[in-house]
């Protein structure tokens, strides 16, 4: 319950404050969001598997986000930023699909 409330508050804050991100960080945010999405689905899967652990979730969330941003940043430095961000999105997308498929099996047996 708290989780859903937290998500709602976060979205509400974002809409209310209309914050603007510093332009240096702008290219990394989409990748970070995809990484966070992966962490969230992974966490939900772990919860359904009854192996959920706060610490693991928080650490995986933060490290996912940071590593994704780092990969894109390095890619930008060496001139393959767009390709690397595509790669990150593909990999994370596959993981998200896997997690969601697992969740679906757990919940609907299908």
């Amino acid at each position: 319950m708290y989780a859903i409330i937290g998500l709602a508050i976060g979205i509400g804050l974002g809409i209310l404050l209309q914050p603007s991100l510093p332009p240096q960080l702008q290219p990394y945010l989409p990748i970070a969001i995809v990484a966070a999405l992966d962490a969230v689905f992974g966490g939900f899967r772990a919860y359904l598997d009854a192996v959920f652990d706060d610490k693991v979730f928080v650490v995986s969330f933060i490290s996912n986000v940071l590593i994704a941003a780092l990969i894109v940043w390095v890619g930008d430095l060496i001139g393959v930023g767009s390709q690397l961000s595509t790669a990150v999105v593909v990999v994370l997308g596959i993981r998200i699909f896997t997690n969601v498929a697992h969740i679906r099996r757990k919940l609907f047996h299908a």
Binding site: Y2, L13, G14, I15, I33, A36, V40
Partner: peptide, 16 residues
């Protein structure tokens, strides 16, 4: 804790 993390997540999405 999950709520706090999801709050950041939602905030980031609206930011983007």
């Amino acid at each position: 804790i999950v709520a706090v993390v999801l709050l950041l997540f939602g905030f980031a999405i609206t930011l983007q």
